[in-house]
């Protein structure tokens, strides 16, 4: 464990807690894409299949449970909570996320480190995580009004993967034979997808104006 990875995990944890806090306190999911949340639940479900078989550390198991629990409860809130669901804008959140799931599954079947069910599922979760934010970014472009919590949520989500890239660089130089091209490339693609959001986020923060994404 290194500081970059720990900071990345804490940033990732903060992003889901910000989202849960928003939904739980103001009972609203305005501006949040259910599609992205469903994709994230699928990412965690397919990545943490080894939850009960491989014990790595208490920290690892605990964080997996938190991420699984939070992502599924966010999906539950937006889908079924009688108050929260009313603020879900399904007419705007129309990204056909099946168009993301299938290509990621096919790619995972073609490009993976080992052709076993667990490994293909793990690779699928990596590819899917890289593109899972797209419905959310599309929704932000459409609705234009980004409230602070949603902006913070997306920012933290992007920052966590950027910290993970530093972690991979650190591990590459400190651990012999630590090479995971698939992880590195999908993590890089994921971070690049946030690049323009980061740009506008910093612009709005620097000029102290409300965050607006260009149409």
């Amino acid at each position: 464990m290194n500081i970059f990875r720990f900071a990345g995990d804490m940033t990732h944890l903060a992003s889901v807690l910000v989202l849960l806090l928003k939904i739980h306190t103001i009972k609203s999911c305005a501006g949040i894409s259910l599609k992205t949340q469903e994709l994230y639940a699928l990412v965690f479900a397919t990545r943490y299949l080894d939850l009960f078989t491989d014990y790595i550390s208490l920290y690892n198991t605990l964080m997996k449970l938190i991420f699984l629990g939070s992502s599924f409860s966010i999906v539950w809130y937006i889908r079924y909570h009688k108050i929260v669901r009313r603020s879900y804008d399904k007419d705007q959140d129309t990204f056909r996320h099946y168009f993301l799931v299938l290509p990621c599954l096919l790619l995972a079947l073609l490009i993976n480190e080992k052709f076993t069910f667990r490994e293909v599922m793990w690779t699928f979760s990596l590819y899917l995580e890289a593109v899972a934010i797209l419905p959310q970014l599309v929704l932000l472009q459409r609705t234009r009004n980004i409230d602070n919590l949603t902006g913070q949520y997306v920012f933290l989500l992007g920052a966590y993967r950027a910290l993970y890239i530093l972690n991979w660089i650190y591990r590459y130089f400190t651990e012999p034979h630590y090479v995971h091209w698939i992880t590195w490339i999908s993590g890089l693609v994921q971070t690049l997808l946030y690049a323009d959001f980061f740009y506008y986020y910093f612009q709005s923060w620097k000029n102290n104006v409300k965050l607006e994404l260009p149409a």
């Binding site: 995990d9 990732h12 080894d50 491989d54 014990y55 790595i56 550390s57 690892n60 480190e113 995971h180």
Partner: peptide
């Protein structure tokens, strides 16, 4: 012994 799977990251 802890099985150190190659995927020790979250």
């Amino acid at each position: 012994t802890q099985k150190r799977s190659s995927h020790d990251e979250l």
